[in-house]
Amino acid sequence: MLTIAFYILSALTISSALMVLFSKSPIYSVLWLVICFFSITGHYILLDAHFLAIVNLIVYAGAIMVLFLYVIMLMNLNKESEPQKPVWLKFASVITGCLLMIVLAGALKGYSELPPAAITEDFGTAKGVGKVLFTEFLMPFEVASILFITAMVGAVILAKKHVND
């Protein structure tokens, strides 16, 4: 049962990710991306990471995608303003992308000799994540606040109207 669900979700993830690339209109791309994130959320649930699944749904599929849509609408993207890349650049990116994929596929092939890590009782629940976050990972959790204040100050610097403008 789980295996079937995994394959269905994987097919959905990959095909929607491809549709993101191949859609002509950026709006359609974003909508396909939403579906992609939804199916990744499904993967998290299959992996017993319930908390992560909900966060992924709220933050990525919810907040960030809405932001994406706003940006696309505000920038008024259409076909004429789309930059045309030279052919050699497209070739180069296809080749490098395929190389990376081959390396990763080769690295993953036959990758079952290492034993899976043991998981705890409350793995993946809000309680379990909270416990780890406030004990072992307290330091990065607190320091991340500096990261966010930096981003906020930056947004203010870039967006504020200055006196001498």
């Binding site: 990972f137 330091m139 990065p140 320091v143 991340a144 500096i146 990261l147 930096t150 981003a151 100050v153 930056g154 610097i157 870039l158 200055h162 403008d165």
Partner: peptide, 23 residues
């Protein structure tokens, strides 16, 4: 994890500093 957060704090501040002459 600390390495990644450190690099991100450094980089995000720099992206903004590089564009600090907004006009």
């Amino acid at each position: 994890v600390m390495l990644f957060i450190g690099i991100e704090i450094l980089s995000i501040a720099l992206y903004i500093l590089a564009g600090s002459r907004r006009l």
